[in-house]
């Protein structure tokens, strides 16, 4: 059986909120290392990969592999019933029909309990090889969100060009063009504002802004976001969570004209 207790319901609320517009029905794969999810959007252009390590829960117990097929709209409805600071416990039997969610207030004696019916989801699973990326950019997640939103007002796509000079986000559309260039930057007092660019070779790729803006819904999960690029492979956008847990998005580049 599965029993996984999160100190704050907020974490799962934010994760589900960040991915629910991209993917609808997904398997939450539970085993002794934690709870993982991998799902592609309908157009197979973007992929979500979530890992909540067992260390992110206290306690965490999962005796055997269990796949919880959950509709994210249903999960969102139930998670709305939890206060952000509630303690959340996920429970399921070994061959479950439902997943049980318990919300406990740390400050009062309220205990809420919900069951969500599970679905049988036959999901395509992609193998993503370990990649040595040509460019890795760490930057404030709010900054990345602002750049994507700003450029989307002008164009449907953005080119991300990384050289030793810095990283340039550029777009052009019907009304004109725009670009934002960032250079490496270290703020000793506020390291969350750092921009770090690790480059082994120059990279230039073009991506759909619609998807990037969607990924940025995860900005509330982490102060920093990591962008990993190599020519001719999908972009990795990573939001690191505590205990080595993460929320990753992969986006295929746009090709041709």
């Amino acid at each position: 059986m599965l029993e996984a207790r999160l100190e704050q319901a907020n974490l799962l609320k934010k994760v589900v909120d960040a991915i629910k517009d991209l993917v609808q029905d997904c398997n939450f794969d539970c085993n002794d290392s934690g709870i993982a999810l991998q799902a592609m959007d309908n157009s197979h252009v973007a992929l979500v990969s979530m890992m909540l390590k067992s260390e992110s829960f206290s306690p965490f117990r999962c005796d055997r592999n269990i796949a919880l097929g959950i509709n994210l709209t249903s999960l969102t409805k139930v998670l709305r019933c939890a206060a952000n600071e509630d303690i959340l416990t996920l429970k399921a039997e070994d061959a479950p029909d439902v997943v049980n969610l318990v919300f406990e207030s740390a400050e009062s004696d309220r205990l809420s309990e919900y069951d969500i019916k599970l679905m049988d989801i036959d999901q395509e699973h992609l193998g993503i090889p370990e990649t040595e990326y040509a460019a890795t950019i760490s930057m404030p997640s709010a900054e990345f969100q602002k750049i994507c939103r700003d450029l989307m007002a002008l164009s449907e796509s953005v080119s991300i060009e990384c050289t030793k000079e810095g990283v340039k986000f550029a777009c052009s559309g019907d009304i004109g063009s725009g670009s934002v260039t960032l250079r490496s930057h270290t703020n000793v007092e506020k390291p969350q504002l750092n921009v770090e660019i690790d480059l082994s070779e120059p990279v230039a790729l073009t991506f759909s802004l619609k998807y990037l803006v969607n990924f940025c819904k995860a900005s509330g999960l982490s102060e920093q976001v990591r962008l990993c690029l190599s020519n001719e492979v999908p972009l990795l956008v990573e939001y690191a969570l505590s205990n080595n847990s993460y929320l990753r998005f992969y986006l295929a580049p746009k090709i041709g004209d």
Partner: peptide
């Protein structure tokens, strides 16, 4: 507009 590629062209199904 540029053609939007597909993840399946980079990663294989497992």
């Amino acid at each position: 507009t540029p053609f939007q590629n597909n993840l399946g062209e980079y990663y294989t199904l497992v």
